[in-house]
């Protein structure tokens, strides 16, 4: 095992443990913080993949905004700080079975795919992924349309969220 692999394994295992705690822990606030830990792990995975922009955006967007939003939402939707009752519904066993089934199916598919043993090509020395990404996002030949649609989606979500959550009194 090389250092890369060790780092990856450590990060991946930590991430998966955090993710598992997200879905099993009884305390929702803890779940949200575990989610933050899992998202940090994913950011680290991005960093290992040399996707530095994605890693930082993961921190800014997910941890800086989305998780905080979750914590807000958790706190706003409870009358007191303690959690009552079981946190899993009656069908959780069946849900676990289905999730496991999905995992088995996915692993089966991954296993059967020929490209799975690929190793990463050398990172081109003069290639700046961030500027390439920036150019791709605003180039008419590339992804300016999805980019603009995403912007519109965000504006619509902003307006919609304010409208839905607005307290008319």
């Amino acid at each position: 095992m090389t250092i890369d692999q060790i780092i990856f394994l450590v990060v991946a295992v930590a991430t998966l443990i955090a993710a598992f705690r997200v879905v099993t822990t009884g305390n929702l606030i803890h779940a949200a913080f575990w989610l933050i830990a899992a998202l940090f792990g994913v950011a680290a995975i991005f960093a290992i993949l040399h996707a530095s922009f994605l890693a930082v955006v993961q921190v800014v967007v997910y941890i800086g905004a989305i998780s905080i939003l979750f914590i807000f939402a958790v706190m706003l939707t409870r009358k007191d700080m303690r959690d009552q009752g079981p946190q899993l519904n009656r069908n959780w066993g069946f849900g676990a079975f289905l999730a496991a089934l999905a995992l088995v199916g996915l692993v089966f598919l991954v296993h059967g795919w020929s490209g799975v043993t690929k190793t990463a090509p050398a990172f081109p020395s003069e290639f700046d992924a961030v500027s390439a990404l920036g150019n791709a996002l605003v180039s008419p030949d590339a992804y300016v349309l999805p980019f603009e649609v995403a912007s519109v989606l965000l504006v619509a979500a902003l307006v919609g969220a304010v409208y839905v959550a607005y307290n008319r009194k």
Binding site: V23, N91, A99
Partner: peptide, 10 residues
């Protein structure tokens, strides 16, 4: 799958 489990069971 972990996320899926959370979605289905929480």
């Amino acid at each position: 799958s972990i996320g899926l489990f959370g979605v289905l069971s929480r």
